[in-house]
């Protein structure tokens, strides 16, 4: 243990071992650099927890549509909605409507929020005017189904795009101001 037998006497060999010397020097240097950062100030503390608003998002493959035809898509349990405070207003907004108007004669994205087996609220999003709606929810975990009803335009060539729903929440008050949000998306192609 750091002592080498040499005849009868023993003498320390710790610093003769280059690896141990390197460790000792590194330890001293790290201590020197860390000490100014940990010393010389008082610390106040702000605690918080943030939980994702939507969870368990079901992956969806691209939807194939035909031009000039009506159709519907039903995505059950598209995602879970986690509401942590009573009176939280959860907003849903249909995004990129300028592109959607070019591809669809009519498009309704229905958001159906379930508490267990009971549908709590249904929010139909449609362009051009009803693209943003909200639900006032109590503290709970909800399942959300998404039902898409569409009439594709009579297009002469293949087009593709994405239906995007932005989801965010506001505690206690109402505000349609869009800051940061979750995106629920589904890709589509329309064949002539």
């Amino acid at each position: 243990m750091g002592l080498r037998r040499r005849g009868v006497a023993c003498e320390p060999t710790f610093f003769k071992d280059s690896r141990k010397s390197l460790f000792a020097i590194t330890f001293l240097l790290v201590s020197l650099f860390l000490s100014p950062q940990t010393a010389g100030n008082y610390t106040w503390q702000v605690n918080y927890t943030i939980v994702p608003l939507i969870q368990n998002v079901k992956p969806i493959s691209s939807i194939n549509m035909h031009a000039g035809r009506h159709g519907w898509v039903n995505v059950t349990e598209a995602y879970k909605l986690i509401v942590l405070k009573n009176g939280t207003n959860v907003y849903f907004k249909l995004m990129d409507t300028d592109t959607l108007i070019q591809h669809f004669t009519s498009l309704v994205v229905q958001i159906v929020i379930y508490d267990g087996l009971k549908a709590v609220v249904t929010l139909p999003l449609r362009f051009p005017e009803e693209t943003c709606k909200y639900a006032n929810l109590t503290k709970d975990n909800y399942n959300v189904d998404v039902r898409i009803n569409y009439v594709a335009k009579s297009l002469t060539e293949h087009v593709s795009g994405t239906i995007t729903v932005a989801i965010w929440a506001v505690e206690q008050t109402l505000s349609e101001e869009v800051g940061t949000y979750y995106k629920w998306t589904v890709n589509y192609t329309i064949s002539p």
Partner: peptide
């Protein structure tokens, strides 16, 4: 030693408190 607790909040949520 001042400790303030903001509590738990959902993501993408505006908090007026």
């Amino acid at each position: 030693v001042v400790v303030v607790d903001l509590g738990a909040h959902s993501g993408a949520t505006s908090v007026p408190t």
